[in-house]
Amino acid sequence: MDRVIEKVKKEEKMVIERSKMSVENLSAWFGDKQALFNINIELFENKVTAIIGPSGCGKSTFIRNLNRLHETISGAKVSGKVYLDGRDIFDHNCCDVVTLRRRVGMVFQKPTPFPTMTIYENVAAGIKLYGKKPKGKLDQIVEQILKQAALWDEVKDVLYKPGPSLSGGQQQRLCIARALAIEPEVILLDEPCSALDPISTAKIEELIHKLKQNYTIIIVTHNMQQAARVADYTAFFLLGEMIEFEVTSKIFTAPQDKRTEDYVTGRFG
């Protein structure tokens, strides 16, 4: 009996999970140096996918291709296909890069609030890019976004102070808020906690849990416990190749590849 229920549950899962982005044969270079080799992966809607691996394995390069930030570096090249809702993001006829980046937001390793702007302006910066809004409406959106980013209670009295006056963890949540403000569908997090203390990290992980109901989240991390805590799926990268991609619990309990096992058990790198 139990078994049957479990099976049904599993099937349900298969139905619910829909691929938001799918990557085919993605390779990337810095000049002559190849950083990614033929990556194939499905990123599911309303799930958190973690990318783990030792430093220099191409994790960051990988997610920076999902919003085409990789190409902005001089000498960078890319080949392969990345589909967002079935449309190739590298195809100039269908998607322009501005629209792509509105739909795929990103938060970086170091908190990067715009230093000369206030907290309010930081959140509003992205919104303003996409059309003018009346002040009252803007206030409303900013408040709502900051609440969504679990920052409102802490900053509601200091909205007009400069962004960098916040603590590191608050700055990072401000950056998440800034990314949320433009109503993306996918959020890329590039080691968002590596510069933060454990308490701030916990807050951000909590936030990620909450956000996945509405967004598709991809998080790069070198912290395996973090991947285990927040991610539904995990991909292990090594030297620019994707070694294994599975449901998180499987990656950590029953990895298929010897290299993955070595890494997650700490016998490596």
């Binding site: 322009d96 501005v98 629209t99 890019l129 996409y130 059309g131």
Partner: peptide
């Protein structure tokens, strides 16, 4: 509206 806005920004 959206594409128009983007076009303006690109200009």
């Amino acid at each position: 509206n959206w594409t128009q806005e983007v076009r303006k920004r690109k200009l």
